[in-house]
Nucleic acid binder design. Structure first.
Lengths: 128, 128
DNA sequence: TTTATATCAGAGTAAATTACTCAGATATTT
DNA sequence: AAATATCTGAGTAATTTACTCTGATATAAA
């Protein structure tokens, strides 16, 4: 996604290109981009000279969006993951540790939603 | 650890007792307490009427201490875990995402080091 | 129209991790 | 001596992770 952000003004970038640059297998990248497309973070152009591009500008894409698209809800424990609260343990009420995990979950989301792709490619914001 | 904090003024609490109360197998609990003892968060009393007790008062034990003792360094990615930085990928310098993971790691540790066992057992601090 | 270049999609897999169990030794109280 | 605990290392089934493989489909360029 950082590579796509760097190429944002140009046409679509192919998986092959990104794979070479980042030393990831094209096949694996392909799978990853499928998830990113389903989450509508990138759009695809099929056929020769095709590839992927960001669905919106780097400043409008939060790292949290990317992580959630690829790994599901951001949470330190399954039982406090938004959307899958039901399937955990049945002791929600009496659980003394739940509050801790909820606070941690919220802070994690805050951090990742506070950084955009734009922040990542403007080196000024990387080193702090 | 919360149970031990609740029993802090009394004598040692046996694994059997905690296992029943929290519905965890005694054998598994045993293994967990071994790690906690190695980290010097609890002390043990062997023999009949023995058990475990907190090594210091609940207000002096941070949740971060407990988590690190049981699960190792708190980090969102292996490559930013303190102590195991060497064994990750060889692209540390060029890695554009590393800064994000480091920031997330620091915030996670901050959250967990800001809550003590004392906070957890005084219900006033649980619900916020 | 053909050919090359891409994405699209689902299935499969080896290795590592997780969440435990088991067996037996050692220490202490009653 | 007997009962009650912790101590220790080894073992294991299920899940997850980080991929690969195969083949279909869409599009641009020759």
């Amino acid at each position: 996604m950082v590579v796509l952000a760097l190429n944002f003004r140009d046409g679509p970038t192919s998986i092959r290109e990104i794979a070479q640059r980042e030393k990831i297998s094209p096949q694996y990248l392909e799978q990853i981009f499928l998830d990113l497309r389903k989450a509508e973070l990138v759009s695809s152009v099929r056929g020769a000279r095709g590839g992927y591009k960001l669905a919106r500008s780097p400043s409008e894409i939060k790292i949290g969006d990317v992580v959630r698209a690829l790994e599901g809800p951001i949470a330190p424990m399954e039982c406090v993951a938004e959307g899958s609260e039901a399937s955990c343990c049945e002791r929600t009420q009496e659980c003394l540790t739940r509050g801790v995990w909820e606070k941690l979950r919220d802070r994690m989301n805050e951090v990742l939603d506070d950084i955009t792709l734009e922040d990542m490619i403007s080196s000024r914001n990387i080193n702090n």
